[in-house]
């Protein structure tokens, strides 16, 4: 019970700290008044702008932590990360189209949709290639993933070169690729929260079979698991989780890799505990990183992916080396 209480308490604390942090620092008292319905301009700014952004960051982090734990479980490899199967390249291509190609819909609507479609489509493509090649296993998927990522990356570079001119800046594309949570309306946040909860539920449906898969393919088959089919199903589910994270948060580096590790140290490697714990750890990390991104160099905002990599990297290396020594 203890690790869960700690995780929940730390997440609550992280949300409060992040909601206080920003160009204009607030106190918990200010937050309380804003939530209580105060009509003061500052309270309304806190309630309509900062709080949804903080909660969206928590959701994106939870999705990344969850996606990372699913992919590490499928590949039975602690170095697996959620962007492994082309989703990063696909999302970046989708976002580039949304940002650079003039289309009918407003960019704010188009961007998450195309990012989601790109991320999910790329993973579907990878899975399809592996199926056709008859290699729905870790090696086949990884090879297909590398190939698809290279092709999508080249396409994106071509689009950027072909479409950019004085009026369309490449900087917006670069800044999206480096990750960042958009401030949602409360109704969009509601949708994101529902998606996040749905993804946690979806992941928990996979949990016991991920544990069986972790026993190795022979043992998993002896225990009645259709290994090939399950890997395909789990990759599909994982790709939905990751695509949702990418649609709302861009390409946030490193969280999907690190969160499952931290969660494993806290609750152990059994997936029924690991998946929700990894989601909580991811939520904590991205909530705090997003607060740093907003508050460190006001009024400018640092891309979220830079913060998670620069702050998360050394922290992770420290944890890892302490772990290896013990």
């Amino acid at each position: 019970m203890r690790p869960w209480l700690i995780l929940a308490a730390v997440l609550a604390l992280a949300i409060v700290v992040a909601a206080c942090a920003g160009h204009d620092w607030a106190t918990p008292g200010d937050l309380w008044r804003a939530i209580g319905g105060d009509r003061d301009l500052r309270s309304r700014l806190l309630f309509d702008w900062r709080l949804p952004r903080v909660l969206a960051a928590a959701c994106v982090g939870a999705l990344l932590g969850l996606g990372g734990a699913i992919f590490q479980g499928v590949f039975r490899n602690p170095l697996a990360e959620p962007y492994l199967l082309g989703s990063a390249g696909g999302a970046a291509l989708g976002a580039t189209v949304a940002l650079l190609v003039p289309l009918m819909l407003p960019q704010a609507v188009l961007l998450p949709i195309l990012a989601f479609a790109g991320a999910w489509g790329a993973t579907l493509l990878v899975l399809g290639i592996a199926c056709v090649a008859g290699a729905v296993d870790a090696a086949g998927l990884l090879l297909a993933g590398v190939a698809v990522a290279a092709i999508l990356g080249a396409l994106r570079s071509f689009l950027m070169l072909a479409l950019s001119d004085e009026t369309v800046s490449l900087q917006i594309v670069l800044s999206w690729v480096l990750g960042g949570v958009q401030t949602p309306t409360w109704s969009t946040l509601g949708l994101l929260a529902l998606i996040t909860l749905g993804c946690v539920g979806l992941a928990l449906l996979l949990a016991s079979r991920l544990d069986v898969l972790g026993l190795g393919e022979t043992m998993a088959r002896a225990f009645g698991l259709d290994v090939t089919r399950f890997i395909a199903v789990a990759v599909l589910a994982g790709s939905v989780v990751v695509a949702a994270a990418v649609a709302f948060g861009g390409l946030v580096a490193f969280v999907g890799l690190a969160a499952p590790h931290i969660a494993r140290w806290l609750v152990g490697p059994l997936h029924r505990a690991l998946l929700p714990a990894s989601a909580l750890v991811g939520a904590i990390v991205v909530t705090l990183a997003d607060a740093i991104a907003r508050a460190a160099l006001p009024p400018a905002e640092i891309p979220l992916g830079l913060v998670t990599a620069v702050a998360g990297g050394p922290f992770f290396i420290l944890l890892l080396s302490r772990r290896l020594r013990s």
Binding site: R76, N77, D211, G214, L215, G216, T218, M219, R264, G268, P269, L270
Partner: peptide
């Protein structure tokens, strides 16, 4: 041969 991937 049996070697679980995770240290359960």
């Amino acid at each position: 041969h049996f070697e679980p991937h995770w240290d359960l």
